[in-house]
Design a protein around this nucleic acid. Sequence first.
DNA 1: ATAGGGTTAG
Length: 598
Amino acid sequence: MHPKPKLFHGKFILVNIFPGHKHPLRPFSSDNTSLPIVTELISKQHWKSLKTHLQNASPITLLQQLLDSRVDPCLTLRYFNWSEKEFNLSHSLEHSCMLIHSLANAKRYPKMRSFLYSFVKNENSISVSSIFHAISVSGDSFCASSIIADMLVLAYVNNMKSHLAFEAFKRAGDYGFKLSAVSCNPLLSALVKEDKIEDVEYVYKEMIRRRIEVNAISFNTVINGLCKVGKLNKASDVIQDMKAWGVLPDVITYNTLISGYCKKGRIGKMYKADAILKEMIANEVRPNEITYNILIDGFCKDENLMAAMKVFREMETQGLKPTVVTYNSLINKLGLEGKLDEASGMLDDMVGSGLKPNVVTYNVLINGYCKKGKMKEATDLFDDVVKQGISPTVVTYNTLIYAYCKDGRMEDAFALRESMVDKGTFPDVTTYNCLISGLCREGNITAVRKLINEMLNKGLKVDVVTYNILVDALCNDGESRKAARLLDEMVKMSLRPNHVTYNTLMDGYCREGNLRAALNVRTRMEKEGMRANVATYNVLIKGLCKKGKLEDANGLLNEMLEEGLIPNRMTYEIVKVEMVDKGFVPDIEGHMYNISGS
DNA sequence: ATAGGGTTAG
């Protein structure tokens, strides 16, 4: 047997002789005559015998010899894993890379995947750049290096280390290693989930530049990411890209875009969503149940239950059966409108048509009862659900806990928290936020502090909502200046204040009569790239009215309409009470004159 | 590896 050329022999022997190692550096054997015996022992997993055979020789030297020999890399892998565990050591990065290269050359792909998965899982100290360096110097096959890099990216994604996956993606470009959609698509998907839209766009552009295979899933994922952050025009551009690339938009592409429009809070969004539906039909892409579910939920969220019901009926004429999700959207809307009889009638219809309600169905119905203050009905339904053998989720508990808090029944709220823990459902940030808001309403700051410490001790992190609750509590105490300091604290905790944060603070200043400060908050918000929304205008319009500046308030009202924002019930209420009832006739166009309706 | 429903803050 001719030993393979030992390209890195000298170098790696030196690397592995690190000081303080408990094993003497004596080689396992002066010649390789016993290697066949050793491989036999490894293949039969006679670890005890192997250990006796090894005696005091270095397990690292044996690894080196196995890597240098022509032994089946799977045996070397088996020895690698055993020796790490047995001697409580970590083999060097270079040896790991040599092993992965030999597995790659033997096309042992599943073994490579699991090796890289556990490597990435356990390894927190080695930088991505040194891993890439080691990959490139530990093997001579460029193709193998590309496959390894590809699997490494995927291993990072699967270990929820998308930041490192992204870095590995960039390094792979530096080395010219060719990645595939198998790793890049999951990377895109992970980045979308984390709202890292700049990184999504970077990966997408690089995939095209590096001529990585871009398929429908890649395009759809990017479109979804852009829709999620409201960049709908860019999303449409990507559809053009995909056509140019010879990939036709499919039902998922259109559904993603329709959903994007449904969630955007601008004038005519449902009109636009409907236009895309027509476009997809024109392009001979058949809408499916999900398309209809998106539209139905969109209309419900747009306060247009009539239109939602119309689409619901149209769905049947298209030969598509409503699903549990369809019913859940409608039951949710009916419940929130307080139409609880209709909501439970809908539940009966759903069961009648052979569909089995799930926990979401019950959550929305329970929420409907809670929002109407019918706690008895809500808890009865909860008991019913449990009796049916459906496990309540953390959302079910949070719904009830919040209702108790809002009702001032803090003991009941805390008791339900105890009970959920007993049943093995653990409180999350939302549970704590509900309790914190209840305690703030009671003015029990000591208890709030205690709860926040408790959640931190449990490894839960406070979020934007937690801060918003505290900002509101301070503003209600006439302490808007202190509330403003919380914004700085948030930023230090790398939490981004959102519209609610700014609007709450503006409202606090307005109620203190400090309009100048409120307007400064708006400026600060816009500097952060966040445009005023309907609620922002409502707060400021009300603030101006309270100061008697009806002309200025009317100016803001017009500005809001020009921005394409839809006035809501609150807007009408403010305009009616603060302007119309005081004899001021708003000088605006269209539906704003119709003050009586909502 | 891509699309749809449920809880909290103003």
